Amino acid sequence: MRVLFTTWAWPSHLYALVPLAWACRSAGHEVLVVSQPELLPLIERTGLPGAAVGKDVDGAGMVRGYVLPSEDDPTADRRAPRAGKGPRALRMFTAHADSMVEGTAETARRWRADVVVSEPTALAGPLAAAAAGIPAVRLLYGADLMARARPLLPEALAPLAERVGVDPEGYDPFGAVTIDPCPPGFQAPDPAGHPRLPMRYVPFNGPGTPPDPPLPPPAPGIRRAVVTWGHTMARLDPALFLAGHAARALAALPGTETVLAVTAAQRPLLGEVPDGVRVVTDAPLHTVLGDADLVVAHGGAGTVLTGLRAGAPLLLVPQLPDHAGHAARVLAAGAGEVLTRDEADAERLRDAAAGLLDPERGAERRAAARTLRDGMLAQPAPASLVGELEERVVACAA
């Protein structure tokens, strides 16, 4: 079986594909990951075969246009205007599909792919599968925030469908099935009830090595809070990167050890780091969370699911619509607390963290996070989903 994976050029979207792609390779199947040229070096660092298609789009510039408003928003003059129905970012996803659709469809045909697996915002994937006459599978990276946009996609993608010889009304932009890594009780509602297959979330937070020397367990009676701000916000504007601010707020909490997990490129953005705060650079997040009692973060899908897999409650400060969507699912599941950027001054951050860490006040949130962790671990591993892909390829060929 030849499995073509596709995403537009955004690291966290690629990372969500890696565990299933490696499961397919480990089962003896051929795998190829395609994206815009900008992402090719990072694809190669995952150890997976990659190919560049289409042309680069200013992804960071477009994402910058969707930063949520705040009193001191450094991106206010670059915010995308609201237009039409559905997610505001649909225009961005369509622009990426426009840059990739012919190249992805041509690669699917020339490489003789048997199935296309795409993350939910890589809208060129299902079109390429339809053009090649093979199944399309959608692999979620978190909450299905695109579910409500499904009725809008045929019209939005009609010009692209026609360019690759696909009837805009004759294919499903969500593919044949959706693979869902979210644990029971976390996923957003799906009004259309698209077929889903559960899959255990296996974190791949990017190439890297565990902390060296390893993080020792906290001393008896000491709680550990891990602060991380993902990859996106610093890339959009250093003023949106609040990891240093959050760590300074938490450093004053008695009986609490604060760990900052950042990249080497983000280290200069932290500002003054208080004594006693440990900074870990370039370590995949899941290698830092083994003894975490709390994760303080921006609300990105990978960070949220990795935190929940560790059984840790979350304190989130979302600044993008999808981060707000994931923060809302954390609140709905009772597994954490959420502050807006304007609310997240040092005192509010410290008070919210203290409540989540408190043995009594935070008990329900911790229990909810552990319930989600247990539900996540009970789901089928990515290797178990390879057989499902095989069955769909056989059914399509028949």
Rank of each mutant, 00 (worst) to 15 (best):
P87K: 06
T104C: 01
R78K: 08
R82Q: 13
M92A: 09
E102D: 15
G103A: 10
A83S: 12
A80F: 12
R79D: 00
T104L: 04
D77W: 09
R79S: 14
G103W: 05
G86D: 02
G84E: 13
F93N: 04
P74M: 03
A95I: 00
A80C: 11
R88P: 03
P74T: 07
L90W: 04
T104G: 00
M100V: 03
T75I: 00
M92V: 01
P87W: 02
K85P: 02
R88A: 15
T94N: 02
D77K: 04
M92S: 09
G103Q: 11
M100Y: 03
V101G: 13
T94D: 02
E106M: 05
K85Q: 06
M92C: 03
H96I: 06
M92G: 11
D98V: 09
R82M: 12
R82G: 15
E102S: 13
M92K: 04
T75P: 05
A89P: 06
A95N: 04
R91G: 14
A97C: 05
T75K: 08
A97P: 06
K85I: 00
A83I: 02
F93T: 00
K85S: 03
R82A: 11
M92I: 03
G84Q: 12
D77N: 10
V101W: 00
A76G: 04
A105D: 06
E106T: 14
M92R: 02
E106L: 10
P87F: 07
P74Y: 02
R88T: 01
S99N: 11
L90F: 08
H96Y: 11
M100K: 08
F93E: 08
M100G: 03
T94G: 01
H96D: 02
T94R: 10
F93Y: 14
R82K: 13
A95W: 01
R91H: 12
G103R: 13
G84R: 07
K85N: 05
E102N: 11
K85T: 02
A105Q: 03
V101R: 11
A80T: 15
G103E: 02
V101P: 07
R82F: 12
P87C: 08
S99V: 06
A83K: 09
A83D: 09
F93D: 04
R88V: 00
D98W: 00
A97F: 04
G103D: 01
T94A: 08
F93H: 14
E102Y: 00
A95T: 14
L90A: 06
V101M: 12
S99F: 04
D77Y: 07
R88Q: 07
M100D: 05
R79K: 10
F93C: 12
P74A: 09
A76F: 05
L90N: 09
R91T: 08
A89E: 11
F93P: 03
L90Q: 04
A89L: 12
P74H: 10
V101L: 10
E102F: 02
R82V: 10
H96W: 11
P81V: 05
D98F: 10
H96L: 14
M100L: 09
E102Q: 13
